[in-house]
Design a protein around this nucleic acid. Sequence first.
DNA 1: AATGAATGAGAATTCATTCAT
DNA 2: AATGAATGAATTCTCATTCAT
Lengths: 201, 201, 201, 201
Amino acid sequence: MPDKNLKKQLIIQAAIQVFSKKNFFNSTISEIAQKANVAEGTIYQYFKNKEDLFFSIPVEKTKEFSTELDLHLQGMSGASNKIRKFIWYYLYFFKMNPEYARTLMLEMRVSKNFVKTKAYKSFRPFANKVLDIIREGQKEGMIREDMNIYILRQLLLGFLEHIVTRWLLKGEKYDLLGHCDEVYELVFQGIGGMKNFQGLR
Amino acid sequence: MPDKNLKKQLIIQAAIQVFSKKNFFNSTISEIAQKANVAEGTIYQYFKNKEDLFFSIPVEKTKEFSTELDLHLQGMSGASNKIRKFIWYYLYFFKMNPEYARTLMLEMRVSKNFVKTKAYKSFRPFANKVLDIIREGQKEGMIREDMNIYILRQLLLGFLEHIVTRWLLKGEKYDLLGHCDEVYELVFQGIGGMKNFQGLR
Amino acid sequence: MPDKNLKKQLIIQAAIQVFSKKNFFNSTISEIAQKANVAEGTIYQYFKNKEDLFFSIPVEKTKEFSTELDLHLQGMSGASNKIRKFIWYYLYFFKMNPEYARTLMLEMRVSKNFVKTKAYKSFRPFANKVLDIIREGQKEGMIREDMNIYILRQLLLGFLEHIVTRWLLKGEKYDLLGHCDEVYELVFQGIGGMKNFQGLR
Amino acid sequence: MPDKNLKKQLIIQAAIQVFSKKNFFNSTISEIAQKANVAEGTIYQYFKNKEDLFFSIPVEKTKEFSTELDLHLQGMSGASNKIRKFIWYYLYFFKMNPEYARTLMLEMRVSKNFVKTKAYKSFRPFANKVLDIIREGQKEGMIREDMNIYILRQLLLGFLEHIVTRWLLKGEKYDLLGHCDEVYELVFQGIGGMKNFQGLR
DNA sequence: AATGAATGAGAATTCATTCAT
DNA sequence: AATGAATGAATTCTCATTCAT
């Protein structure tokens, strides 16, 4: 299994590189195979087709994200700290994976049927984790009990997405991590003050 | 010229429909030709190639936008009114052209070299018009003299873009025009109040 | 008629330029039309199709050649002089028309069905002229009576063709006219001396 | 490798047939594929594009020529004999491959940039072989030491080319092999006697 | 499991030719 | 006679996918 997974990982890593440089249609299976050091046919042993491989990228990356996130949250106490950490790690992760960021934010997320893909579904466990932290915040009194936690989660994740997307469109020229505070404050303090503000997503 | 332009318009209209339903690569010249009721070869009499046709869409649409906008601003006085009208018309335009909106915001805007295209360049005159209104607002005292008008414009247009993009990603389920006030207030009143807010784009 | 012919000439001149730079298939009617300052459709008023236009070039050029040749032979006496003049003019003509030379020698003459074309037929009157000179030479005693004048003509024209072709293949780097004597001598003196020599064409 | 080469050979053989009957532009990949009993796409696995396939023909044919020539020269002694054999084999080869002859002599050889093609480059080793024989002739005293062997080679190959070309233009009606002596004598004896003769190429 | 040769559908693009004006 | 917009057949080439080894 580790050996089997190794090859799959190899292919996905190659796919990330190729797809992020060229977009779905201009990327070729042949190039991915070359970069992964496997034969073209081998790819079809692990993935149904090109599209399947494409959407497997976020599935794998999200697993990676979750695992690492858990490590970072390990041993921390206090929802406030955890949320800060989460925001920081979210931005850190995309800062460190700008190629994947482009593919996910500017190509996949934007496609009409993204929500129907396995990629979208793979976000669920990670989204649940966010919900848990928010609930913890409510217990601690940091977040009002009457607040709709689903909307709050949507607000948080939506704004993070927006921050990353903006950064990509601007050419990744500034430091993503500089926005940690902005997110934290906008989401957790700005909410009360802005009447017409319905969340950025 | 009216006859000649007619055919070009016919093709562009067909292109808008096809490109917005399918994305650049899955759209075929053949389908566009069919929808425009012309031969495939005819398209190449008006456009250099598929990409040229693709990026001609915003060029034409932006012309249309500008012309109509002028009509709407005709006879109005007061920068404040003009800005409100502009915001309203911007949202109204994309509400009425959702297919074009998808193509522009989710496919073109997001592509790596968009700023190098003729589409991007075609925004210039329209962006200048916005600047004129802002300057008028400064003269009238509605906007502080020490404000950087370029940043203000960027803020306004960026937020409008954002509003439209969000709407598209959410499946065009709510009424875009419901956001007129939000934009106006965020851009022209929120600025002072939000310490950490650096503009959404 | 002069006006009508003018346009036809215009087109042929343009065709010569275009066809000689690019070969039949890479040359386009559109480019010829542009260069001739006429509409594409106009070409089809004068020529049945692209091929017809192509093979009209030698027809016209051969007329030009003949007319000019006549002028050069005017007032000359003595077959020997006339033959020398003919050789000189032949080489001079292609020296002055290298583009046409390429087309004729390296593209047309080499094509399988060249002898069936009107171009080939248009050589006839000019070939007769050569025959006349040879006959004159026989009368004057310069050429043996028992010599087959058709073979002699073939030898002469064939060798001239060869000289021009070689010059073209070598990149037109040396002066064609330097070969006048060689032709004259090979054809009119070498014949007796070379046992196995059956004429170069 | 034998299997792999087989398919490549299959395609080249088909290409020779098609290209020699129709010329480069009128020949289609589709027809070549049909004749070779492979899919069109298969051709592109072995050749970069149509032009590459076209110029691969002489590359392969020249290999074949060289290999066979070696066999024929095997065990022979005496430069004079070798040269006679070479001349014979050269003419024999094109007699047996008239389709290839047409393509090489009347289409490729004549094209403006032939010397830049890989086809032209593939002649080199074979040309060297000729040089070796000539040098051998010098050692044996058959060829004068003060003769420029490069010019002699050029003369020999040029005249052979010319003989074949003439034969093709005349419709392949007579026997090419009847010219063996003519070539041998012209090149190796005619040289001294003909003052103005500078070699036919 | 891995391979990679073979496939062939599919698409963009070109351009000679026509024909209504 | 002249035009040039419109045509659409024709062709090259690409590449995801399959399958025999």
